[in-house]
């Protein structure tokens, strides 16, 4: 009886997983089919591989799609570096140093995790447009160097609190200052938290549409999400095949990051709650 119940449970879960993933699988399969089949073939079985959509999609916009992939890659890399540097510094201070008003600052930091970007986007845009930063990556990258992704600060604070304080004490007795304790002891030990930060920053920046839509209006500067969106507007229902093909291309890096970094993703959202 118990075995049977387990079997039923597994069958149910597998069916549900299939339903959940079906749309994405179907998009991948459809991108490998001739355009007109997308509207009459709901199944997943391929007659043959037809990669023509990828060729058409790749060159459908002003620049080849590789240009937008490169833009996104540059942006993501810069954001990762910014988050790693600035959030780890802030986290060290919150986890290991004692200073005036610490509880208040810490509460403010936690509060900003929940702050919607839409509330600050208007004055931010005015500021960045006066600095002449619109249509550069600066409005998207500079905030990351200023530890504004408080989620990661919190993640790292949690992690540093779990490291034994004896290590710092020993280093201090040996004459190390905070800079050296941070660089030589804490940073190497918090690699798992840094890895989580890398993967989440990668995925969130790669997917982020709102701020990239606002700050990048010159087609030369388009990143993948903005380019994909302009593709939709340009080709409404004429060529779903090539649109699906480029959608698959744009999701592939996220999927790869998920495969490589699953462990860190799951642990990251399990310990801090995630988005």
């Amino acid at each position: 009886m118990i075995e049977l119940r387990k079997l039923v449970k597994h069958v149910g879960l597998i069916l549900l997983a299939l339903v959940m993933l079906y749309p994405v699988l179907w998009m991948v399969v459809s991108s490998l089919r001739p355009d007109n089949e997308i509207f009459r073939r709901p199944g997943l079985i391929l007659d043959g591989l037809q990669v023509q959509n990828y060729g058409t999609g790749w060159t459908a916009l002003v620049s080849p799609f590789g240009h937008y992939l490169l833009n996104s890659a540059i942006l993501v890399l810069a954001c990762i570096i910014g988050n790693l540097a600035s959030c780890s510094m802030a986290a060290y201070a919150f986890a290991r140093l004692d200073f005036t008003g610490k509880r208040l600052w810490f509460a403010i930091m936690l509060g900003t995790i929940m702050l919607p970007i839409h509330v600050i986007i208007v004055p931010q845009y005015i500021m960045f447009s006066q600095l002449d930063w619109v249509n550069t990556f600066l409005p998207l990258v500079v905030p990351k160097f200023l530890a504004t992704d408080a989620f990661f600060v919190f993640l790292m604070v949690q992690f540093i609190r779990g490291l034994p304080r004896e290590l710092d004490e020993a280093a201090r007795i040996d004459g190390c200052g905070h800079a050296r304790i941070f660089l030589r002891i804490i940073l190497p030990l918090m690699l798992p938290a840094l890895a989580t930060t890398v993967i989440f920053t990668f995925i969130w920046t790669w997917n982020d549409f709102f701020s990239q839509l606002i700050y990048l209006t010159d087609p030369e500067m388009y990143t993948v999400p903005v380019a994909l969106r302009s593709f939709v507007d340009a080709t409404v229902s004429t060529s779903w095949g090539s649109m699906f093909a480029m959608s698959v291309v744009s999701l592939a890096p996220v999927f790869l990051a998920f495969l490589v970094g699953q462990r860190y993703l799951i642990r990251g959202i399990a310990t801090t709650g995630g988005k």
């Binding site: 600035s86 510094m89 201070a93 140093l97 500079v142 160097f145 941070f182």
Partner: peptide
């Protein structure tokens, strides 16, 4: 014990972010 100077250095980017990117714009 208090470590205001070191804390200020480590938190400098975060304070700048608070001023220019989050609290200031609000």
């Amino acid at each position: 014990r208090r470590d205001n100077k070191a804390a200020f250095v480590f938190l400098a980017p975060w304070f700048a972010g608070l001023l220019f990117i989050t609290a200031g714009p609000i």
